[in-house]
Amino acid sequence: MPTAFLPRIAAGDPLAVAACIDEYGGTIWGLAERYLKGFGDDLEDAVQEVFVEIWRHANRFDPLQGSEAAFIATIAHRRLIDRQRRAQTRRAVHFEDHGFLASKPLAFNSAELADDVRKATEAFQKLDADEKQVLWFSLYHGLSHERIATTVNIPLGTVKTRLRRGLMRLRELLQADFAPSNTRPKVEGAAQ
């Protein structure tokens, strides 16, 4: 498991900032490439926005709630989804066929993963195929619920139901590993 950079970043350590960029830069860049494909958005601007968001919220990271990698990935996912929505608002986006339907969830390389990440991947394998598919489209490709519905050709409500059911089943499977702590739940936008 990599060293936690976020507490040091919260304390204003420049070396931790540089190390954080080197550790997670590739992950977030790849995520931005996939999520913003077809939106015409500026990848560098998006990645910088994600990192600033991570640094700004570094003091909220609680290692008892999960790994730093999962914390950062969650922020990146939400910020990039938000950029998708803004890009779609700015102009009419015409999506091309990127072959989402043909793509299948990648096999995990468990050896390199943090403990909680590894356990989440193991639990994912136990889900139903339809739950895996919508989670793959949402979390790997960054597709909105509406685009998943269009891609898979199922109603929007079904997409939501499958996503919720998949995440709830994962939570049940991982109940012991994600035990609640004494911190209050954090919600994106709750402070607004």
Partner: peptide, 22 residues
């Protein structure tokens, strides 16, 4: 617990991203 859901989704994102190696 609220963080459980986001931690699980974040863990999956991280796991797939580690596989693609961008």
């Amino acid at each position: 617990h609220a963080d459980a859901i986001s931690s699980i989704s974040g863990a999956l994102i991280k796991a797939w991203s580690a596989t693609t190696q961008a």
